[in-house]
Design a protein around this nucleic acid. Structure first.
Lengths: 223, 223
DNA sequence: GCCTTTATGTCGCCG
DNA sequence: CGGCGACGTAAAGGC
């Protein structure tokens, strides 16, 4: 019974006091209470994002006319209910979950497997090369033996260039590695990122995910 | 009729092909269709985030057993419906919307009104000072007449320091302004951000939002 | 627990 | 419409 979604249509007003203060004047809305304890208040727009919400772990206390939801950090959501227009619950059970393909991790794996995409004679040192400020996506060597740090993004934007710049700055302090050059690899690279990369001597490479996946027959996906 | 939330409980499987590829095996889920055209598929967990969704603007085509949602970019969500267990619609009407207080814009306004929080003799030049790479939160002068660029965050992290660094680099190319010094102001500043700022000669200032609001009696909020 | 990065991020503003 | 920055960003993974 407790493990069910609950859908309530109600005329209500809402106050949130937590990381910020927010208020919703009275109106008719959808209240969605999930088995994980979360509560969200939806209008008929804003895509899937609720107007207001409380994420689990939190506790919902239901009194006549007032729902109070609090979490451990002391954030509070107070829903004042003027009128309940619909109240329905259904036990969905546990969901098997989403299977994804084509996220950055997949790009990284594919590029590491086909590191010569970056150029003839390239060899992989390792993926997720650890540094004090975080892991470098791929560290490899070019044909002349020079070290190359690769930052991979699905969509290459200015932040990614900044990130690679920080890595390069750090890696070049290591006399065993230096000089380290940089490659910014992404399925799509925005012009400003490209300009910034050029300004910093970083090479940009556009990745073809389907192409990389196509030549990757290691797991028999090809046919 | 079309301007209503629609709540469907159904046993379904889902495929998304767009920015990535994703699949949901058959299970019972909540389908939420909003008047704005969005469709979201919820399990009984993950707080307010759906397992899968399509944001507006998009078009839902409903055939027996298959819903197809496509948007302009060619992304597609295909919902195969094995069994409808519940189907309910309700017209919520337009929502008056959320009123927020305490976000970065409020901090910026308060600091601009009390610019001497940064030091005796500071004077405001302007908020949102425009540059080619985006607006500087606050530009002001210190007691000695030197230009100061201020970047404001609720939570000061490394990205904010990078951002301010880019602004300073640009502003310092303008002979009418140079030399421009930097202040990184936030309600809370993370140690790494603090270290990076120090390394770049940027001063860090911790803001007290309630304190600033307290001395701000301009709109009679004090009592 | 703190730190990092990723995300189908989403959202809003402004040119 | 694209660029840019904020967000109650959330969530995942490493140390």
């Amino acid at each position: 019974m407790s493990f069910a979604v609950r859908l309530v249509i109600a005329r209500c007003s809402v106050d949130y006091i937590g990381r910020l203060t927010a208020h919703l004047p009275p109106a008719t809305r959808l209240l969605l209470v999930k088995a994980d304890g979360s509560v969200s208040i939806h209008a008929d727009d804003r895509a899937y994002k609720p107007l207001n919400w409380m994420s689990p772990p939190c506790r919902l206390e239901e009194q006549p006319g007032v729902w109070t939801v609090v979490n451990k950090a002391g954030e509070e959501l107070r829903i004042t209910i003027d009128e309940v227009l619909h109240d329905f619950s259904y036990d969905l059970g546990v969901d098997p979950g989403l299977v994804k393909d084509g996220v950055e991790a997949d790009l990284q794996r594919l590029l590491a497997e086909h590191i010569t995409t970056l150029g003839e004679g390239y060899t992989l040192i390792r993926r997720e090369y650890p540094t004090a400020i975080g892991p470098v996506d791929i560290l490899c060597r070019d044909a002349s033996g020079g070290t190359v740090a690769v930052e991979i993004k699905r969509r290459g934007e200015i932040d990614g260039v900044e990130q690679l710049t920080r890595y390069l700055e750090l890696l070049n302090r290591d006399p065993l590695l230096a000089p380290v050059s940089g490659v910014f690899a992404a399925q799509q690279i925005k012009p400003q990122a490209s300009v910034l990369a050029a300004d910093r001597g970083i090479r940009c490479v556009t990745l073809d995910y389907d192409g990389l996946r196509g030549i990757d027959d290691s797991d028999g996906k090809l046919f």
